[in-house]
């Protein structure tokens, strides 16, 4: 009995921690790549996006896990997307009501969470196969990993583009802002370099 409960905790811990580094959606699995590029001009919208994704991911994993025994194989994907679309609508209306300026800034990228491959991928790979607790822990871990990746990228871009983070001046006085960091170029190149560094780091660890 004791051994089985230990096994259980190990399973839970693995489910929670996998998303943070080993299977980090942005740096390792390369899925859901649109938001990391689009909303990372500053840390604030990136954080909002991350929290929205965590909310949608956890809720849809919860529902998917509950209905996993009822799903017919050919109707699977449409059920996942409809579940996700419902929670994204909730999230979008909430943002519109309480954070109107942030909602305007994020614009179409909030509804675009529906087609974020990360959420469908987790529903397909984890929530539709495992129990309630494991799928929720997995969703939290994946969502956190995604948010951390967004914030790292946004932090670098905001720091180099304006010299501040959260309106807090960090760079010395004579710093010339890199305007290119705020444009699409900055997004693509920064993410490319970060991915390269991530893969260099893994290779070093392995060898």
């Amino acid at each position: 009995m004791a051994q089985s409960s230990e096994l259980q905790t190990g399973l839970y811990r693995r489910a929670l921690l996998a998303g943070l580094w080993q299977q980090n959606p942005t740096f390792r699995l390369l899925i859901g790549m649109c938001p990391p590029l689009a909303v990372t001009t500053a840390v604030k919208p990136a954080l909002t996006m991350g929290v929205s994704v965590i909310f949608v991911l956890v809720c849809s994993s919860f529902v998917t896990s509950l209905m996993r025994n009822l799903l017919k194989p050919h109707l699977r994907i449409i059920m996942f997307t409809l579940t996700i679309a419902t929670f994204v609508t909730i999230c979008d209306l909430y943002l519109k009501a309480y954070f109107p300026r942030m909602s305007e800034l994020l614009g179409a990228y909030v509804p675009l969470i529906i087609v974020n491959c990360l959420i469908i991928f987790r529903a397909e790979a984890c929530a539709s196969k495992s129990g309630l607790i494991v799928s929720i822990l997995d969703a939290i871990g994946m969502g956190l990993g995604f948010t951390v990746a967004l914030c790292i990228l946004a932090g670098i871009r905001e720091l180099l583009a304006t010299g501040c983070i959260f309106d807090l001046r960090i760079m010395p006085r004579g710093f010339v802002p890199w305007l290119a960091m705020q444009m699409p170029v900055g997004a693509f190149v920064t993410l490319g370099i970060l991915l390269g560094l991530a893969s260099a780091l893994t290779k070093k660890k392995e060898s």
């Binding site: 390369l30 699409p184 170029v185 900055g186 997004a187 693509f188 190149v189 993410l191 490319g192 370099i193 991915l195 390269g196 560094l197 893969s199 260099a200 290779k203």
Partner: peptide, 15 residues
């Protein structure tokens, strides 16, 4: 080696 695949593609996309 570590920049092969996705990273170099992203940098190319930036250019």
């Amino acid at each position: 080696v570590s920049f092969q695949g996705a990273p170099i593609t992203l940098i190319t996309a930036g250019i």
